[in-house]
Amino acid sequence: MKKQTIKFLVLGLICVLTFSCKEDPLPKPAAQLRLDYKVAEYDHFENECPFTFDINSDAVIKEKTACNFTIDYPKMKATIYLSYKPIQGNIDVLLRDAQKLTYEHVIKADQILEQPFINKDDKVYGMFYSVNGNAATNGQFYVTDSIHHFLDCSVYFYAKPNFDSVMPAASYVKNDMQHIMESLRWK
């Protein structure tokens, strides 16, 4: 009986050693939050200002001063600043200021892409700047009719600039900015 017990113990020990041998545990890599946003739906925005545009229905628009707005994205901690200025023989100064504002981010930006915008039918002309990298803003634009109206726009996130972490939100808001620019009409 002793011999049989020893066989069972040896067999049991072999089974335990065989099935308990696993690979060394490895730490899991740090997970990144996946940011998915629903497809944007747009509402037409119009008030007494000399322009109209379409705005994302999830955004909150507030008029700060006469025809100067903030468009907030609370879920993304982002704000679009939209500023209107009438042209009074100062189109060169307005254009230079808008371009200067964009290129102040060149220190932190990896790349600034310029995309001209021309809508001859509605007399809306401008430039969209896509700022890539760890800059304070990821997108800016200006539009004008070259005679009476000038509007500039930029987006800022309330987070430390880290392009990799805000990229999904930045891309979403940049698409909204482009939609604002493309839907803008002068009255």
Rank of each mutant, 00 (worst) to 15 (best):
A136K: 09
M127A: 04
P27V: 14
K187G: 10
P29V: 14
D24P: 03
K7N: 09
C49V: 08
K100T: 12
L113Y: 07
V93A: 14
T102L: 09
Q111S: 08
H148N: 15
K85C: 00
M167S: 14
D72T: 05
Y37I: 09
D97R: 10
N90R: 04
F53C: 01
P27C: 03
G139K: 02
P25W: 04
A109E: 12
A40D: 05
T144G: 06
N175P: 00
S146I: 03
I14W: 10
C153G: 02
N119H: 11
H148T: 12
T65A: 07
D145E: 06
F157E: 11
R34K: 12
V10T: 00
A109N: 13
D54P: 00
R96D: 08
D164C: 00
K108W: 07
P161E: 15
N175K: 10
D164P: 00
N68F: 09
Q99A: 12
T137L: 10
K28F: 02
I61E: 01
I107A: 09
K85D: 06
D164F: 02
P25N: 07
Q140L: 12
E104G: 11
L113G: 08
F69C: 03
R96K: 14
K62Q: 10
L13I: 13
V93N: 12
P86S: 05
G89S: 09
E114A: 15
K75S: 14
C21I: 14
S171W: 03
L184I: 15
H44S: 14
S146G: 01
L26M: 07
A109V: 00
D122K: 14
P27Y: 12
E23W: 03
I112W: 05
A135I: 00
Y103E: 14
V39H: 11
I118H: 14
D58F: 12
T18F: 12
F128Q: 10
L101M: 13
P50L: 05
I107E: 03
K187L: 10
G139C: 11
M181L: 14
I112Y: 12
S57Y: 02
